[in-house]
Amino acid sequence: MANALLKPMRVAFGETLLELGAEIPNLVVLDADISSSLHTFHFAQQYPNRHINFGVAEQNMMISAAGLATTGLIPIACTYATFATMRACEQIRSFICYANLNVKIAASHGGIEVGWDGPTHQATEDIAITRAMPNMTVVSPADAIAASALLRQVIQHQGPVYFRMGRNPVPILYDKNQPFSIGKSIRLHNGVHLTLVATGVMVSIGLEVVERLAQHGIQAGLIDMHTIKPIDQDAIIEAAQQTPLIATLEDHNIVGGLGAAVAEILSEACPRRILRFGVPDVFSESGNPKDLFRKLGMDAESITHRIMQSIALNPELRG
């Protein structure tokens, strides 16, 4: 892990979009003045008549995406997660989801991993918002390979999709041949004492937590929940049957996100103790993401510590 190759998901996104441009003639890319950040400029240069820059006008971009979709095109609207899901929230909800139009929303800068730009640019509600919209599919890849493979599926998928990426370089976790399919999670480790269910950039942190716990004789399982909606219920219930403790890991508010989704399923199907790791319902701040993660208990060390504490305090979890 320590020497893993690093690559930002948005770079893989831009590269794959360029490939898809050649393969899918009705794919159109929409930007709102940050094509340099989303790496959509490759596509824009190659396919100028299938690229539209709306300027700083996310609401108009999103509602126009709905209009474009009615003409048989597949629009992919690209911006930061805050602006996509909050500035243009109603356009997505009432005109893309309600109308069930084939629009893809690609967002980078999901989570406090954004760091220096601060809370206005750190989306910690976007999963909760998009997850609450009927007809929506919510996808959150963990590395550059997953971003590329899942993007291909997203474009093939019929209906609205919210595709969430981070800002910074993240370790490459997957082999190029790893199969991905929307709605089907990936099991990275089998556990005895607990199972970690992670999404996005938290999957690589989950891997580190697994290693750290192993040093203390605790065997943790790990699931990459790259699709948050529709969520892989079977995998979650199976994990709860195998291990007495479930921990969810997300770079998002613990309210309404992955942790909430997992808790909703287990409370009905297989009640288990759940630890939710993520942003503890606060606004973060500007700073190095490493510092912010530590401050909010989202780094591998803090997560490991809290899990061990919980196991120590609850004899039934010792297995």
């Binding site: 220096w116 730009d117 601060g118 206005t120 701040e285 500007s286 912010l292 401050k295």
Partner: peptide
């Protein structure tokens, strides 16, 4: 500016 704990956030607060 832009450091963890600063009064000077990356965008005005």
């Amino acid at each position: 500016f832009r450091c963890c704990g600063s009064i000077l956030q990356g965008h005005p607060d």
